[in-house]
Amino acid sequence: MDNTINDWRDLAACRDSDPELFFPVSEVGPGARQVADAKAVCARCPVRSQCLDYAIDNRLTDGIFGGTTEAERRQLARRRHADRHVA
């Protein structure tokens, strides 16, 4: 695996967290609390932007990455795509 990717992952705030926290069944109801808890971990992460870029670049559809849900990443990806075409 690419050492650059390993480097940012080694610094991730979620590294010692239960991975299941970042894969809520739903974003509503009881899952909303899990999403909030996962995002709280991301909020204190020094490599949050690298994580988010990785998730968008690799079109990850499940889980919380870089403090975003799949729906939020989809919206960001659309904006990035539109910005590239405007520039």
Rank of each mutant, 00 (worst) to 15 (best):
A13T: 08
T4M: 07
D16H: 10
P30F: 00
E72R: 04
D7S: 12
T4C: 01
L76R: 11
N3T: 12
S26C: 06
A13F: 06
L21C: 10
D7W: 08
V35S: 11
M1Q: 09
I56N: 06
D57S: 11
S49C: 00
D2E: 06
V28D: 12
D57I: 02
M1F: 04
C51F: 04
N58W: 04
R74N: 10
A77R: 09
F65V: 00
D7Y: 09
G67W: 01
D53A: 13
R33Q: 15
G31Y: 11
S17L: 00
L60E: 14
Q75E: 15
C14S: 07
L52C: 07
G31F: 11
L76S: 04
V47Y: 00
R73G: 02
E70A: 14
R84A: 12
Q50A: 12
A13P: 06
Q75D: 14
N6E: 10
A12H: 03
G31R: 10
P24Y: 05
D83V: 08
D53G: 09
D10A: 15
A13I: 09
A36S: 15
M1K: 10
D57C: 05
G63V: 03
A40L: 13
R84H: 12
G29T: 02
P19A: 05
Q50W: 04
P30G: 00
A13H: 05
G29D: 07
A12Y: 05
N58A: 02
L52Y: 05
A36G: 12
G67T: 03
Q75L: 14
D37F: 00
V25F: 10
G29L: 05
P24F: 06
V28K: 10
A71L: 10
D53E: 14
E20I: 00
V35A: 10
M1T: 08
F65H: 13
Y54H: 15
V25M: 11
V35H: 13
C45W: 01
V28R: 09
R73A: 04
P30M: 00
D62A: 14
M1A: 11
D53F: 01
L21W: 09
T68M: 08
R9M: 14
P24R: 02
S49D: 14
E70G: 13
G66F: 01
G31K: 11
E20K: 08
D2F: 00
V28W: 08
Q75P: 00
E72T: 05
